[in-house]
């Protein structure tokens, strides 16, 4: 089996992975980072969104070997003791109910804010095309992302 080497949450990691191993399986099963969720398995729900070299991607739709040499950030990599501002905004604005979609929502939202520091409600709703939530009706998620964007702008992005 080939060995895959990448940087995950700032740490160099390597592990064995068959070519058919998905990045999300490698993160969850090999590295034990179960914060990244598998929701649909058909590339639609966005629960598995992580950052690959700074861009949000669906980790269920790429192979672990494709991430060779790349820098991956998962939900576990955001906090350094205290919640990252976007995470804090989701808590503050109750941007979740069951929480299953939340890791993907937060990772997706941070990518949005990195590219567009002051997104409008419309920008946010358009951006969430690739993230499905079956509980909240999105209302509080949108509020949370707006507040998270403001907090990130005020406190510097992380």
């Amino acid at each position: 089996m080939p060995t895959v080497t990448m940087t995950v949450n700032g740490r160099a990691v390597s592990g064995e992975a068959e070519p058919r191993t998905l990045l999300v399986q490698f993160l969850r099963d090999t590295l034990g980072l179960t914060g990244t969720h598998i929701g649909c398995d058909t590339s639609q729900c966005g629960a598995c969104v992580v950052h690959l070299d700074g861009l949000s991607v669906k980790s269920c739709s790429m192979l672990a070997v494709q991430a060779e040499g790349a820098a991956v950030t998962t939900i576990e990599g955001l906090s350094n003791g205290e919640l990252q501002p976007m995470q804090a905004a989701f808590r503050e604005h109750h941007g979740l109910q069951c929480g299953f979609c939340t890791p993907g929502m937060v990772m997706s939202a941070i990518d949005l804010v990195n590219q567009n520091p002051t997104p409008s409600e419309h920008d946010i709703r358009e951006w969430l095309d690739g993230n499905i939530c079956r509980c909240t009706g999105y209302h509080n998620i949108v509020k949370a992302i707006k507040a998270g964007a403001e907090a990130m702008a005020a406190g510097g992005k992380r």
Partner: peptide, 9 residues
Amino acid sequence: IGDPQVRNR
């Protein structure tokens, strides 16, 4: 095309 994550790959 697709959604932001699809456009990123």
